[in-house]
Design a protein around this nucleic acid. Structure first.
Lengths: 158, 158
DNA sequence: CGGCTTATTGCAACTATGTTGCGTAACCTG
DNA sequence: CAGGTTACGCAACATAGTTGCAATAAGCCG
């Protein structure tokens, strides 16, 4: 089995957008294809720079496209701890509970598989629980060695 | 047992700061006392407006004091989903796992008691887990009724 | 108590992320 | 291919947080 080419990813993206019944536009396809091609959650900035190479899309348009994709269930937003949003193509939307991993060293964010057991939390009286978001912090495979060598001095990628 | 007066909270704050061995300054006491007096996690903006009534403290100073308090384990930061940080006095720091509740309607954020069972998550090979942060979304006691009445139309407090 | 040293504050300017308004261009339909 | 509507791009704005530096005040020591 060959890896999907960039072109076929664009086609997938195009098809997904067409299926919503709304307009198929260059920015929408570009953003969604980029998200699908990404191995991890991307920030708005990362999206912008990855897209620019092929066809320039306006900053604002990317924001609006992302909002649109979320509204139509084609992408979802991850709230990082650095006040930056990251976006994933929603290949497998698991409603009710999300789990993400964030490397404290390089800042990379992954969308983890849904947790087996939905953690049970005790809320104050009268409160109602809807979704649960789980953020696991730690170090990714690339950063574990660096972390082990020089404890307490992490190189951040801001 | 009487509720602590505002004054004794300021004294508590002062003592906690003094115990670190560093300088006891007006902004530090003001910020920490405000956090201790707060019933929930406060944003930087909320802190600023609550402090202003007694003695004006510069915006930037509040940021720096908060950073300092965290460094000394007297406060901790919660990453909301609205890209705003909220701060709690760290009365009971539970290292390794935090749990917070955020009301999707009024935006209030609470620091929940540590979860009984640390949720077990499967990470990719080579990844190392450090902390786990749990964000429970739902509706607080005050907002549950409103939510029940008009589903899908939440009044946000931005 | 009053001056000395150094940490801390306040101000101003800056950066980064995200949002809004509006005229223009692109898409789809007939 | 003409027309209506949606979506885009630009520019200006809003908000959250950061940095540099001179002025201030905490704690110390005589």
């Amino acid at each position: 089995m060959f890896t999907m080419s960039t072109k076929s990813k664009a086609q997938t993206a195009e098809q997904l957008i067409r299926d919503t019944g709304a307009r198929v536009t260059v920015p929408r396809v570009a953003v969604l294809a980029t998200l699908i091609a990404a191995e991890r959650a991307l920030t708005h900035q990362e999206l912008e720079s990855r897209i620019d190479r092929s066809r320039a899309v306006d900053r604002v348009t990317i924001y609006r496209v992302l909002e649109w994709l979320m509204k139509h269930g084609l992408a979802h937003k991850i709230t990082g701890e650095d006040r930056v949003w990251r976006f994933n193509a929603a290949a497998h939307m698991h409603v009710g509970s999300h789990a993400h991993f964030k490397c404290g060293d390089c800042g990379q964010v992954l969308c983890l598989d849904p947790v087996a057991a939905k953690p049970q939390v005790r809320l104050p009286a009268g409160y109602r629980q809807n979704e649960v978001e789980l953020l696991v912090k730690g170090w990714c495979a690339d950063c574990v060695p660096a972390h082990g060598r020089s404890r307490g001095h992490a190189r951040h990628q801001h």
